[in-house]
């Protein structure tokens, strides 16, 4: 049995200059090749968990541990985590005016390769074109400035494009589905499915509000986060139940902190 991709044990975290924990004891194990859906009401801490995994400096881990392929992730800077194979598709991606997607991604790819091992420009362009085709993106997209003036849907697609190019071992996708119309949702889902098919060991933590995307990207597990903890886990039937009944029936479990 291979070691788990991601192990989170009793994770507590807060905003740097605040006293109260936002994450209040998260436990989660993701095995290679598995898709985990993480659902939960607004403000329950899903994005905070995603950002803590990716190494956002604005959050402070107060206790617990996060292991990635057996390594202590919490000791690494955000860029090291990325190079180690962690990817976060942002709920709200930042805009970087003046920096083209092609340039940005090539820099990111080269950062992985290390000094003197930089990828050939033409090889990179071929890869980028291939991934853009997968996501049905126009060629001109590569020359646009990163997220600058993008529509909500374009930003989300750009996140998946980056994931496709950087080929992570673990992808945390924070509400990549929200704000997408049905066509875009299908394209993005197809993209994710293509990636999981191409890399059988790719682990995905799919954060979502809606069951909708789970019709396209089939999760192996579904978890519910409330009030900074995972309060319920199950299979796809859990997503069905949440859709039918909402989160109220879990209030009690959530309150018992």
């Amino acid at each position: 049995m291979a070691q788990p991709l991601l192990v989170i044990r009793d994770l507590h975290a807060k905003v740097e200059d605040d006293d109260i924990d936002i994450l209040k004891g998260v436990d989660l194990v993701v095995e290679p090749g598995n898709v985990h859906a993480l659902m939960g009401p607004n403000g329950s801490g899903k994005s905070t968990l995603a950002k803590v995994i990716a190494g956002h400096p604005g959050y402070e881990v107060t206790s617990g541990e996060v292991l990635f392929q057996g390594e202590n992730l919490l000791e690494m800077e955000a860029d090291e985590r990325s190079r180690a194979g962690v990817f976060l598709a942002f709920q709200y991606p930042a805009e970087i005016p003046g920096v083209t997607i092609a340039n940005f991604l090539r820099t990111a790819v080269n950062a992985r390769a290390g000094k003197g091992e930089e990828t050939d420009v033409f090889a990179f362009q071929a890869t980028l074109a291939e991934k853009m085709a997968l996501l049905k993106m126009d060629d001109s997209f590569a020359t646009r400035y990163v997220n600058d003036g993008f529509s909500g849907g374009e930003k989300k697609r750009n996140e998946v494009l980056q994931m496709a190019v950087l080929e992570p071992a673990l992808a945390v996708m924070d509400e990549t589905d929200s704000g997408l119309d049905i066509d875009a949702l299908q394209i993005v889902s197809h993209g994710v499915n293509t990636l999981t098919k191409a890399d059988k060991d790719l682990g995905v933590l799919l954060i979502t509000h809606y069951k909708r995307i789970l019709n396209y990207v089939k999760p192996d597990f579904v978890h519910v986060m409330m009030n900074g903890r995972i309060v319920e886990s199950g299979g796809t039937e859990l997503a069905d139940k949440l859709e039918a009944q909402g989160y109220d029936w879990l209030q009690e479990a959530a309150a018992g902190v």
Partner: peptide, 22 residues
């Protein structure tokens, strides 16, 4: 912005430089 660039594997100095170049 810095976190976004760094979360793609770009180190802090390069991330800063990219923002300025942009």
């Amino acid at each position: 912005q810095l976190f976004y660039l760094m979360s793609r594997g770009v180190d802090e100095a390069e991330a800063m430089a990219m923002i300025v170049r942009g």
